[in-house]
């Protein structure tokens, strides 16, 4: 694996506000890397420094072996960028935007085919202002892909979209990866990062506080599994002896079992079988990145 992006000790302030504080990470070729954190955590600033849209105060950035700060044409030809809250001219038509972008790069893919793949072929004569939020985002993805980039930046891609549109966009991002591209994205949606990202970096108050795959982060910070068990005649004591159990109690007639370790759930099932308990309902709850975030920062990502 080679690093496509190398960021070390990145710093950026706006006046007295430190937006990004000593952030270092790398993005490997072919992966989907997510920068996750609440609004205002410094995700967009970090990403825009890497894109070369913003100039960092300190630190070094290498994108495809080059410094993005120089606005090098050579680099811009190899990356694709989708910016948060970007707009186009209100009355520009979809095909005109794609056509304009095609002119800007020396090597491009077939714009019409791209529109078709992104489900925008029927909208090719529609003005930008008349597109829905999801269609606008799909157009921005098209523009980010027009130069067949090796590396694609997606900033808060699905913010403000309905769940249906969000799923469609996720499918598209996964397809970008299938084509062998590297994707660097930011999101404050934990579901999005779990669905898309190979690795995530958690950023809070401008500092990078964790980095790894979702499974690694969960295992590291939230190893507990919870089993909810409903049975005709169940007592907590039966389960208190199984390995890894941390808590066994009955709430509203449902047995809550909390434990750590990969084998915890199987142990519970074995115990049920052993004692021939007649189970009417069995549910497990796995911690997710949301829980990891809560554990790391003490607050929910939406606060």
């Amino acid at each position: 694996m080679t690093s496509v992006i190398l960021v070390s000790n990145l710093k950026k302030s706006y006046g007295s506000l430190t937006a990004v504080d000593d952030v270092s990470f790398s993005v490997e070729e072919g992966e989907i890397f997510g920068l996750i954190g609440p609004n205002g955590a410094g995700k967009t600033t970090t990403m825009e420094c890497v894109e070369g849209v913003r100039t960092p105060d300190a630190g070094s950035i290498q994108v495809l072996g080059r410094d993005p700060g120089t606005r090098s044409i050579h680099l811009q030809n190899r990356i694709g960028v989708q910016l948060q809250e970007a707009q186009l001219q209100k009355r520009i038509k979809v095909w005109e935007a794609v056509d304009l972008w095609t002119t800007l790069f020396p090597k491009t893919v077939d714009g019409e085919k791209l529109l078709e793949e992104l489900g925008l072929a029927e909208k090719r004569n529609t003005r930008f202002m008349n597109l829905s939020g999801g269609q606008k985002q799909r157009l921005f993805i098209a523009l980010a892909l027009i130069n067949d980039p090796e590396l694609v930046f997606l900033d808060e891609l699905t913010t403000g979209l309905d769940p249906q549109a969000r799923r469609t966009i996720w499918e598209m991002v996964l397809r970008i990866k299938e084509r062998g591209k590297t994707v660097f994205l930011t999101t404050h949606l934990m579901e999005e990062s779990e669905r898309l990202c190979d690795r995530v970096a958690v950023i809070e108050h401008g500092r990078l506080i964790e980095l790894g795959t979702a499974d690694e982060l969960i295992a590291r910070h939230c190893p507990e599994r919870t089993v909810f068990l409903s049975a005709a005649d169940v007592s907590a004591e039966v389960f208190s002896g199984i390995p890894g159990v941390a808590k066994a109690e009955i709430k509203d007639g449902v047995l809550h079992l909390v434990g750590v370790g990969a084998g915890f759930v199987s142990s519970v099932i074995e115990c049920i079988a052993e004692h021939r308990i007649r189970v009417t309902d069995f549910q497990t709850e796995m911690p997710n990145l949301e829980d990891v975030f809560l554990k790391l920062t003490g607050h929910s990502i939406r606060d």
Binding site: G52, V53, Q76, N77, V81, L83, L88, Q89, W101
Partner: peptide
């Protein structure tokens, strides 16, 4: 308007 709505910013991120 171009600046306010982010059109200029979007154009800045191209070889334009």
């Amino acid at each position: 308007i171009y600046r306010e709505s982010g059109i200029l910013k979007r154009l800045k991120a191209t070889p334009l």
